[in-house]
Amino acid sequence: MTFSALRLDGVTRRFGGKDALTGLSLTIGKGEFIALLGPSGCGKSTALNCLAGLLPLSEGSIWQDERRLDTLPPERRGFGMVFQNYALFPHLSVRRNIAFGLQMRRVPRAEVRRRTDEAIRLVRLDEHAAKLPGQLSGGQQQRVAIARAVVLEPSLVLMDEPLSNLDAKLRLEMRTEIRRLHQSLGLTTVYVTHDQEEALSLADRLVVLRDGQVQQIGTPAELHDAPANAHVADFMGYRNLLPMKVSSPGTVEGSGLSFRATSSLPVGSDVVVAIRPEDLLVGPGGVPVTVEVVEYQGREAAVEARTLSGAPVHLRVTERPSPGDKVTVVADPARVLVFPA
């Protein structure tokens, strides 16, 4: 299906008077990979179900170019969806699961066969085509679910935390697989996840949600380097979120720490300072902290330390200290983000 853009306009969904999703507006270009990111209960799955047509909107509209979609039932939107629990039809073989959508669209039998074969090959399940879903491993079931959604060449593929039921190793493999599929098929995709690493590595653009509200929309690099607020920063791996005060222009102080930082906030205002563990360096002339917990992580160690006032800080170091050691930490002013409290 050819189209140039998919437009969400103020998409809102309420459950019993409570907003689960508020005013999501977003334009998705053809071929784009969008990730909806947020903690559980943030409204990301609601957004996906609204897009799929499984939940009616309370307000707003969804457009594919000039065609209004939000008034259509799911079976007429022409989207493909990968469910969190895969939702494979347990009584149909892998082949018939994948062929189901084509048959529903009354595609001629020979073409169903050809496209199903192609999809099975694409997800490398050739020798499992005749099996029932119950006979497959989690990763294989996942691939069937993906093949079933993409075989229709849908105008939009929706994925609802597709990797959350897999173990860590398989999750990495499938992540690469999904990226590879997206690169080779160029299907427009909306991907829901609570895993920032997954979202950053897969998506062209990310939408960060919290309590049903959009916090920030941007490329992985934008979100990674310049989160819009402390919540996004928290989600993007800024483990040190410290309540501090602007003590003088260009300096923040508090929690037993003091950093140089650029901030336009007036002197004396309460702020939250966000620093990634890897940007907090052990070095001379810094603030003294006491090492408490050291976690081995291969080439580095993750360290939790306490400042003199007792606030916990997280840092990553290459030379492993021992618990109880006293070290001093410094931070590059450009890497210290200051948000209003």
């Binding site: 079976e75 022409g78 939702a87 347990p90 189901f100 529903m104």
Partner: peptide, 18 residues
């Protein structure tokens, strides 16, 4: 019967009877 099966069928283009 898992309700997501019917949802999946719906997104694959099956009407209620199918």
């Amino acid at each position: 019967i898992d309700p997501s099966l019917e949802k999946a069928a719906a997104t694959l283009g099956a009407g209620w009877w199918q």
